[in-house]
Each structure stands twice: as structure tokens, then as C-alpha cells.
Design a binder for these strands. Sequence first.
DNA 1: GCCGAAGTAGACAGGTTTGTCTACAATGGG
DNA 2: CCCATTGTAGACAAACCTGTCTACTTCGGC
Lengths: 188, 188
Amino acid sequence: MNPEKHATHTSLAARDRILRTAHALFYRDGVRATGIDRIIAESGVTKVTFYRHFSSKNNLVRAYLDYRHREWISWFSDTLARYGGCPDAIVLTMEEWLRTPSYRGCAFINSVGELSDALPEVAQIARNHKEAMIAAIALVLPAVHQRVELARTVALAMDGAIVRAQFDDTPDFALNALKRIIKSLLIE
Amino acid sequence: MNPEKHATHTSLAARDRILRTAHALFYRDGVRATGIDRIIAESGVTKVTFYRHFSSKNNLVRAYLDYRHREWISWFSDTLARYGGCPDAIVLTMEEWLRTPSYRGCAFINSVGELSDALPEVAQIARNHKEAMIAAIALVLPAVHQRVELARTVALAMDGAIVRAQFDDTPDFALNALKRIIKSLLIE
DNA sequence: GCCGAAGTAGACAGGTTTGTCTACAATGGG
DNA sequence: CCCATTGTAGACAAACCTGTCTACTTCGGC
């Protein structure tokens, strides 16, 4: 009855392949620009298999955003810790991300711009994602009071750097500006 | 020979109606989500008329971004001046924009996310737009040296506020965070 | 008054989109 | 060992996309 419990390893592999392919294509080319047929062909399944796992493209988009959220947040938390879990870790972690060759901005910001009318809950999904990002940031900030409010402000500057690095040739300016803003906020 | 010189007032009206309709729909619903047929129907022209003015959808998109750029920059400069042309005018101008009911974020950030592969020059168009925005900001900042560099940093924070306000219910947090960042940057 | 530019209505081509359908094979747990 | 689940291949429907085409009208400048 419960598909989660009855899923075999082969079915998990098929579902997983679809989700990974969708993630790669949706993130790289955009959700609207990517057709179901393309995802089906590149993940090596058939249409029936696909529609048995995801009853519609919108459901696949929801699964993609959920998958992206979990992957990105765990990568972000781990990388902040790897760089020492101090305020400086923020810019270093961002630098590592923004210099990734496959970097194409924030999947959630991009999806809100693309889908706000077609998939209304995407705004709420984006808010949840940013809230988790803010919580991770707060952990590496000094324990001033209103630490979460400070983390929110830092997160807003990060979003500015994220979109700026998306259309600049190099992320250098975005990273320098972010560093300057964080330093300035922490001096007070 | 020169279509600019031979254009009659009726033809200008038709071209203008198409451009305004395209602007409204592209900005509200996104470029990929808006079909040519819809723009044609809502601007009250026929397909032949449309394709006489814009030889392809991509050309219409370019014209839309150019139109948006000129309109937005002149509104932004005027509004900064209207609020006194001082640093405080930045947040007040942003507040006026972000509280507009039709607010849907920055047309250029949205277009980069949607079209970066389909229309490669959109990244350059976005950079040009932000450069003009930075120049307008610099005019209201105190005449410190490196004023333009300061304006660039302020612009990055504005971009953060722009995307944040796009998926929040109210722009209150984005505006407060922006105010805090600008104040902090100007204290030094 | 003629001619070119710009307008009208609407059919059409060729491609792409999402989603359904039939028919059949493999496989693993009760 | 049987049967539900999951998989395969591929045709199909119905809508939508961009762009072209024919055929006719309106209007302004030379």
C-alpha cells in the first residue's frame, strides 16, 4: 500500500535517475525550457515509468525543489563548518559555490521568477529554503543578541551576490562587495 | 527607406501598443510563459502587422528589455531626486517600487534566469542596466573617494532586497535590511 | 490620382508540449 | 508459485508554439 515501503531497489534507481536528471536540466536550462520528453530520454526510462513516479510535471518540479533544498542546505552547512564555522567562512563558502563551473544562481530565486503564477507554492518553498539558510548562517555569527536578525540581513546581501554573480563574467566583484557588507555589519 | 522617418502615426501607435502589451505580459508572467499569439491578441493587431515590426520573438524580447531599461532608469533617477537626492532617498525610492501592486522583481534579473541560454546577450544587457543603476546611485551618495565602488556595493544589497521582496508577502523585511546595510556602509 | 507603406482577417505548416493508452516482460515478497 | 509492482517500447490525442502565406483595405505624400 505504502509505495515508500514496497519500493524495490530497481524502482528507487529509476526514480533517483529521473530526479537527478531533472535537477541537472531544470537547474541548468530552467524549468520551462526543459520538456518532460528530454528528462525521460536522458534518464533512460519510458513515459509510463516516469508518470508512475511523478504524476505530472508540476509534481516533478516540487520534488526537484525539495531535493535541491536538502542537497544544498547540507552542502552549505558542511562547508561553513569546514571553513572553521566563523564569520569568515561565509564568504569562503560562497566563493566555493560561485566559482563552480555549473553555477547558475539560486534554484529558488530562479524558480520564483519563472513560475510564480504557474506554481503558486514556489514562493513559500523559497521562503522555507531561505529560512534554513538563515539558520545555518546564524550558527557562525558571534553570539550577539538579535543574532538571527543579523543573519537575515547577511542572507539578503548573499542573495544580492548570488544574482550578481549570475550575470557577471567572474564572481570577484560580488564576493568583494559581500565581504565589505559583512565586515561593515559586524563592526557595529 | 528609413523606416523611422517614414513611420506614420498609426504605425507608431501599432508598434507602441505591441511593445506596451509585451512589456506588461513579459514582466508579469515571464517571457517563456507568454506566447506571441497572446501579445498579438491583446495589443489588437494582426500577425502580419506584428511580424512587420518585430521580425521574431527574440527581437521583441530585445525591444522589451530596451524599453524597460529606459523607462525604469528614468523613473529611478527622477524618484531619487524627488526624495531629496540624498542617501536616504535610496530606501524611500525602493519602498515606492517594492510596494507597487504589479511588482514582480527586476525584469533583468528575471530574464537572465529565464533566458541565459536561449538569448545569450541578455547577460550583457543586464550588466548595462545595473551599470546605469549604479551611476544613478552614485549621484546621491556623499562625495567620498571611491564613490562609485560604494555605489556598486549598495546596488548589490538592493538586488538582494529586490529578489527577497519578490517572494515575501510584504517588502518590510527587505527594506529594513537594506536600510541597515546602507547605514552601516555609510558610517565608516 | 497613383503608389508604397501599413493595416485587416484568417488559414496553414511544422514543430513541441503534456499526458494517456495498449501490450508485454521481468522480478521479488507472501 | 503466483501476482502485484515496476519496468520496457512506442503510438496517440489535443493543445500550443513560432513563423509564413494569400488576399484585400486604408491612407498619406509626391
